[in-house]
């Protein structure tokens, strides 16, 4: 930081910022990964429509984070008030639930259906758990093909729980990345004069050529990792070789050659 003589602290802070920025770059496509996993799991559940809802605040509200299916675009960012509907129950109880004949009376789902033009007939909702905490709800709505549909079975409840574990890990990574990003954005946009020095320092760190290079490298890595198994394997081999070269060079330097 400007005026701070403790260069060790400065270096450590730089490293933290680098780690956060690289982390953000690597987890940015997480919502896309969540939707891909959602699609794959919905196919095994015999359903075309599925959604992931996550906690929104501390009062038990939920909001749609990801959705696939007919009305996916309309669902994203829609909010569910605390304790309302099956999703609200699943969040607060931590228990899955299978319901047939969801529509009908003036229920929460009737309200959502009215807003989206969709017709929710049946649902399997299961909690997203991470470290013993319920962080959201995974829902599968209706079946593929024309009705009437067979209700979701107990075996499918178990299958959904497995999918929920995988999705919960991604949701947790997304939440962590979002937290860092939000904190960083707040720090950068806050008008508080006392933080002006910290903002200037942070801008300075991010403007350095070294930091930009590192971000480009992280982006490159992300791009390569998304290309396929063969590319990932080759990339790992190359990077391992670079590391070995670097290690041998530092050993050589140590011997004074």
């Amino acid at each position: 930081m400007p005026g701070n003589k403790n260069t060790d602290l400065d270096a450590k802070l730089r490293r933290v910022i680098e780690t956060i920025d690289i982390g953000n770059l690597l987890v940015e496509p997480l919502t896309r990964s969540i939707e891909q996993l959602l699609s794959a799991s919905a196919a095994t559940m015999g359903s075309n429509d599925a959604s992931v809802l996550i906690r929104d605040g501390d009062e038990g509200d939920l909001r749609f984070l990801a959705a696939i299916g007919e009305v996916a675009d309309q669902l994203r960012d829609l909010k569910v008030p605390a304790g309302k509907g099956i999703a609200g129950f699943v969040l607060s109880s931590g228990q899955p639930m299978v319901v047939s004949d969801v529509g009908g009376e003036q229920t929460f789902y009737a309200e959502v259906d009215k807003a989206t033009g969709y017709s929710t007939q049946m649902m399997l909702a299961t909690p997203l758990r991470y470290n013993d905490e319920v962080i959201g709800v995974l829902e599968y709505i209706n079946r593929s093909g024309p009705p009437p549909w067979e209700p979701f079975t107990p075996a499918e409840m178990d299958k959904a729980a497995l999918c929920a574990d995988a999705i919960a890990s991604l949701v947790n990574a997304y939440e962590s990345a979002k937290l860092f990003r939000d904190l960083s954005e707040r720090l950068m946009s806050d008008g508080d004069e006392e933080l002006a020095d910290a903002r200037a320092w942070l801008r300075g760190v991010r403007d350095t050529a070294e930091h930009k290079e590192m971000m480009e490298l992280a982006l490159l890595l992300r791009e390569l990792a998304s290309r396929g198994d063969a590319e990932r394997a080759m990339c790992r081999e190359l990077l391992d070789a670079v590391l070995r070269f670097s290690d041998s060079r530092s050993e050589t330097s140590f011997l004074g050659y």
């Binding site: 228990q95 899955p96 639930m97 299978v98 319901v99 047939s100 004949d101 969801v102 009908g104 009376e105 003036q106 229920t107 209700p151 979701f152 079975t153 107990p154 409840m157």
Partner: peptide, 13 residues
């Protein structure tokens, strides 16, 4: 089910 209707439900609950 609330509202006077009925539902088919599955669970240990």
């Amino acid at each position: 089910w609330p509202g006077g209707g009925y539902r088919n439900l599955t669970g240990n609950s």
